[in-house]
Amino acid sequence: MFPTPVERRSAAVQNTYKALLPLALILWLLPLLMVALFSIKPDSDFTQGNLWGLPSAFAGFDNYTRVFTDSAMPRYLLNSVFITVPTVIGAVALSCMTGFALGVYRFRSNIWIFFMFVAGNFVPFQILMVPVRDLTLNMGLYDTRLGLVLFHIAFQTGFCTLFMRNFIRALPRELIEAARVEGVSEIRIFWYVVLPLMRPAIAALSVLIFTFIWNDYFWAVVLTQGVETQPVTAGITAFNSQFRAAYHMMSAGSIIAALPPVMMFFLMQKHFIAGLTLGAVK
């Protein structure tokens, strides 16, 4: 292991290390801790200049309740769910098929199609912005969640295909060959042989895409407007103008908005990191 494990060092080094860990963590999360502290303070603490001290009274419950009762936040959160979940399902479904096609079959244009997906995935959003907005307008889907979902599915298919294709490449080919010898049709091979083996990839990809889409802001601003359709990343701006300078409320709102992907990460940590670090190890 590198660096040398601390257990092999002197007691002094070990204790210093163990003391440094929480300190480093506090420093690392300091901006976030500040906002977390703000979110449980009562309004009066800000007017009296008690900014970073202990809250004079615990107002966390009130603040967080008000986020849900006094603002459009629940609506925005719901919109985010209705945008994110269909996108995850759509992008994963499409890329299971494209990944299968590119990972299993050998045909001349295979690598070029694969490269098209990979390259498209890296493209700056701005080069797509004007035409995609125009296309969505022409389809009558501007300012609808469906319009946003369709674009997200299409764009995420690039990254998902890269992911799935590499995953399928690493599966044992003998399984597929054996099934072919038995005369199993290609569609049934996909459904009964390969798809069950792809479960870990599907799980990893789902949590990743969930996070990416939940956190999207750019396309939400370009393709939607208003409370009926906008996801929480865009809604938080409206929320903040409603509670202008009420830092305890804005802090609570931001934490609520950020929470779902964070929970997703802590619940599905193994899959999340496996997905994110794909290719980081040979």
């Binding site: 976030l32 956190n215 938080i236 931001s254 908005a257 964070v262 999340f272």
Partner: peptide
């Protein structure tokens, strides 16, 4: 995993 929007606000 926190959205960039919230990171921006926090900072």
């Amino acid at each position: 995993v926190i959205s960039q929007v919230v990171v921006g606000l926090v900072f």
